[in-house]
Each structure stands twice: as structure tokens, then as C-alpha cells.
Amino acid sequence: MPKFGSTLPKMDDVFKSHPHPEILTDLITSQRLRAVDILQNLIPAKITEIQALIKQEDNPSSPLYRGQVNEPAYTDPKIFQPTDTARLQVGEDGEKLGLGKIIMPKDITSIKGSGNSNHDGDDVRMGSHWFEVVQLNPIQVKCMNIVTKELEELHLLSQDLKVWLEMEIPVVEDGNSFGAEVQAHLISQLTDAYKKSNSMQNGVRAHHTDRLKLATDWAKYPNFPDFAAAIAASDRFDHHLLRSYLRSVLILYGGLLTRFERNWPKVINPKGSHSSGGMY
């Protein structure tokens, strides 16, 4: 570390001689405009959108329809060994879902006749059965895409509001701090909102990891019917969980908008004086 002698640098004029005074001014200007748009337009629109998605639970044509859990995609998962031509998986609506490169049994194992006259033409596949294919649940994937989009937008809107509100906090001083405490409470609520969003996104992602573990074991022990039942139960629960997440998102949006509206005078003017740099 270089030596500077016994004289310590002075810090008094750090902000008096700020080389870029416009940076914070430009930032708070843009974030105030963003906050106005979020609170006046975007959150109310999201509340309406989430309510419409929840209503789709009564629409049989929607992937969010509560009766989807009684369809074969949820009740009857399949495991199969692909052929050289079975390179594509087709969803219920005819959509082709690529499986990527498939490693075939002949690529890794030897095959020999079973020698059982009652099963002419059957072959015994030697070695571990890790080349089996368990199809995706296409309905659940559509639900995941819908809910993930809502969770990502909740996260970003909450963070944008937090960026703005952090810049509205007044000078820290003794007395008359209730407005600042309201701001701090709202910042805490915004932080909680995007943390809950992250947690729910992890819950959405767990659908694939849970199925991966069950399907891997099923491929190892293909004669155990409990694996099919376990995947069906897991998919059914995941469909319920995603619909529950939509209600959680609605709670978060409704709660945030209500808190901001009811505490707005303290949010924009926490010291009761416009000299503090409030919004108006």
C-alpha cells in the first residue's frame, strides 16, 4: 500500500464538488415517471389480467382448467423405448415437441432373443434401461409458461418501484420520522414481493426436476407401476400449485397497490414539507 504521509484526505467536499451532479437527478426523474406508470396503469392492468387467468379455471379449453387433472396427460403418464424413427413427441393439440438426439439401445447394449417360444420376436434389452423416454406433460408446460411470465413481471415491477422509493427517503434526523417509517415499510413489502416471486419460480421449476427423478427411477425399474402413479400425483399437485400461485400474485399486487394508495401523502412527502424533495 502506498504511503501518503501523516495527512489524511478530507471528505468534506465529496458532494460539494460532485463531478456528475446530473446522474441522480436524471435517475430519480426517470424512476418517478416509471413509478407513476406502474401505480396508475401497470399494476391495475395486472390485477385485471390475473383475475381473468383465474377465471379460466372454469374454461375447459384453457390449460388452467381445473378439470385438466382428469385428462390422460395427468392421469396416464407413459414410458416407452423409442425406435429410430421416433424422434418427435406430439402434444395433444398436434404441436410437435422435439426430444433432441435420442440414444438408441443398439448404440449402447447388445440385444439377444429371449428364447421364449411364447414371445416370438421379442428381444431382451441388455444393460441399464436409461434410454427410455417419458413424455412431457404438454398441458402443464403451457401452465408453467403462463405463470412464469406473471412471476417475472411481478419481480421486475416490484424492483422498479423499490429503485424509485429508495431515492425518495428524506434526510435522516431526529423527530417526525413516521413518514420515513412508512416508506421503509413499503420498501420491505416490495422486497418481500420479489423474493416471493423468486420462491414461486423455483416451485415452478421443480416440476421438471421432480419428474426427472421419478422418471429416472422408473427407467431403472420399469415393472413398478407406482412410478406412473407417482408422476401422475406429482403433475396433479403441480397444476394445483400453479393455480395457487396466481392467487398469491393477485394478493401481492392488490396489497401493494392498497398500501401505496392509502399511505400516499406520507410516501411522497414523509416530513410534511415539500422542501424534502417529495414527488410534488
Score class of each variant (00 low, 15 high):
268 I>C: 08
254 G>H: 00
249 V>C: 14
265 P>G: 06
242 L>T: 02
252 L>V: 15
241 L>S: 11
276 S>I: 07
260 F>L: 09
253 Y>C: 07
247 R>W: 05
234 S>D: 12
249 V>R: 05
228 A>Y: 08
250 L>S: 04
249 V>D: 09
263 N>H: 14
245 Y>R: 09
266 K>Q: 14
277 G>I: 01
235 D>N: 15
269 N>T: 08
262 R>M: 11
269 N>M: 09
227 F>C: 10
234 S>Y: 04
250 L>M: 02
246 L>K: 04
277 G>T: 01
226 D>F: 09
266 K>W: 14
273 S>V: 13
237 F>T: 11
262 R>A: 12
252 L>A: 14
272 G>E: 05
231 I>T: 12
254 G>F: 00
260 F>N: 06
277 G>D: 05
245 Y>A: 04
271 K>V: 06
247 R>E: 11
259 R>E: 14
228 A>P: 04
276 S>R: 06
272 G>M: 01
263 N>I: 02
264 W>T: 05
277 G>Y: 05
234 S>P: 02
236 R>N: 02
256 L>I: 05
251 I>W: 09
235 D>T: 07
243 R>H: 01
243 R>I: 03
230 A>H: 08
241 L>H: 09
233 A>R: 03
258 T>N: 14
249 V>W: 04
254 G>Q: 15
231 I>N: 10
273 S>K: 13
229 A>M: 12
248 S>L: 11
270 P>T: 01
239 H>V: 00
226 D>H: 12
262 R>Q: 14
273 S>W: 06
259 R>M: 10
258 T>C: 08
275 S>P: 00
264 W>F: 15
255 G>P: 08
261 E>M: 00
242 L>G: 10
269 N>W: 00
273 S>C: 08
259 R>Q: 12
237 F>C: 03
251 I>S: 14
257 L>C: 04
264 W>Q: 11
273 S>D: 15
226 D>V: 08
232 A>D: 04
251 I>P: 00
257 L>S: 13
250 L>W: 00
230 A>K: 12
275 S>L: 13
248 S>K: 13
236 R>C: 03
246 L>A: 00
228 A>D: 07
262 R>L: 14
249 V>P: 02
256 L>P: 02
262 R>K: 13
241 L>V: 10
242 L>S: 06
231 I>R: 11
275 S>H: 05
246 L>R: 01
268 I>W: 10
232 A>N: 04
235 D>V: 06
259 R>N: 13
232 A>R: 01
258 T>W: 06
263 N>V: 02
268 I>Y: 13
255 G>K: 08
273 S>N: 15
266 K>Y: 14
250 L>I: 03
258 T>M: 10
274 H>T: 10
237 F>A: 13
246 L>I: 08
236 R>T: 05
277 G>H: 03
241 L>G: 00
231 I>Q: 13
257 L>T: 15
232 A>P: 06
232 A>H: 02
256 L>K: 00
272 G>N: 05
227 F>Q: 07
229 A>W: 04
232 A>K: 00
236 R>E: 02
